[in-house]
């Protein structure tokens, strides 16, 4: 065996590895934070300018079309809307930095608790939906690996990619209403299954995507020499799948999962409207329609923090799974 070159990963000092990983991770996290806050600032500036050029004004929206111009002017003065744009922008920036968003100009509710509550609802749906997608994509791949005759399952779930989200949501809701009249289709419904209905519908697209990604990875592994070696050594089918197909596929599969968790935040708006859920999508749309800038500011900030959190966690998790990253 004299001419053979072998690298034993365990021979690399642990401290050296983790220190290198730590530096890289810290750099990545810093990059994410800086770019996310840059995006947040741009979005904030864009919304501020958009609101200032629109022909309607927040005081008018708040008091309605019938209020006299004098009443609207009094309120404009109180809200500081008659100040110069620079002064208004400075004030809003100050609020953004100090996290003091004040109250909704529409109904006087404190902004941050309101935004957190609505985000919680949307993130809840997102986490449920992507978790369902994670489990289902794993199970389908396992079934197809063990019993290749069930390969049609991959094609079946592929429907989730081609059908538009609103069509899936609407058709799904009406079919559930027809075939399972015991399941309530509203956010106010109680019972274990009711809140799962919108999540299950939201999971259709991620299921399709993640099933295909995992399937592709598994097929690549199956074609590799180490997989053939595993078969030759006599590993059971389950062991072949879990140790030699699933494990090397974890990074792209979980990356897709993280990516879907971020994207599903936008997809839930349709679900919020169909299932009457009070989530952050509806909150954002209403804030824009009502010219409710404090709420919009809050949504933008919490949104940015959420994405920074997700990206940071994924950096750390991926580096743990695969130290080469």
């Amino acid at each position: 065996m004299g001419g053979e070159v072998s690298v034993d990963i365990t021979s690399v000092p642990l401290g050296e590895l983790s220190e290198g990983w730590g530096r890289r991770s810290a750099r990545s996290v810093l990059r994410i934070v800086v770019s996310s806050f840059g995006l947040l600032f741009t979005a904030f500036l864009f919304c501020f300018l958009l609101f200032s050029v629109l022909p309607s004004d927040p005081a008018r929206v708040m008091l309605g079309p019938n209020a006299s111009q004098d009443s609207v002017e009094s309120l404009r003065e109180e809200l500081g809307l008659n100040d110069s744009l620079v002064k208004q922008l400075t004030r809003q920036m100050g609020q953004l930095v100090t996290l003091d968003f004040g109250r909704s100009i529409r109904d006087g509710r404190p902004v941050l608790p309101e935004v957190f509550e609505k985000f919680g609802v949307t993130i809840g749906i997102g986490i449920q939906a992507t978790t369902i997608a994670l489990l289902v994509s794993y199970l389908i791949n396992l079934i197809v690996f063990l019993r290749p005759k069930f390969g049609w399952l991959i094609g079946l779930v592929g429907f989730g990619v081609v059908a538009p989200a609103f069509l899936l949501a609407m058709a799904g809701a009406l079919l559930i209403g027809y075939f399972f009249p015991g399941i309530s289709l509203t956010a106010s419904a109680e019972g274990f299954f009711a809140p799962l209905v919108p999540s299950a519908i939201a999971s259709l697209y991620p299921i399709a995507l993640m099933t295909r990604i995992l399937r592709k990875q598994v097929e690549e592994c199956q074609a590799s020499s180490f997989f053939r070696a595993a078969i030759a050594v006599g590993h059971s089918k389950e062991s072949q799948f879990h140790r030699f197909a699933l494990q090397p596929s974890l990074v792209p599969w979980l990356a897709a999962w993280i990516n879907q968790l971020s994207l599903i935040f936008f997809a839930t708006l349709v679900l919020e409207l169909i299932f009457s859920i009070s989530g952050s999508g509806v909150l954002l749309v209403n804030a824009i329609q009502d010219r409710d800038f404090p709420i919009l500011q809050g949504v933008l900030l919490v949104n940015a923090v959420f994405f920074i959190g997700i990206s940071t966690i994924s950096e750390i998790v991926f580096a743990r799974i695969d130290p080469r990253l």
């Binding site: 609407m170 809701a173 209403g177 919020e272 299932f275």
Partner: peptide, 13 residues
């Protein structure tokens, strides 16, 4: 008083 933002869902319920 229960909210139904979608008319078809309201009718289904």
């Amino acid at each position: 008083f229960r909210v139904f933002k979608n008319d078809q869902i309201g009718l289904s319920e």
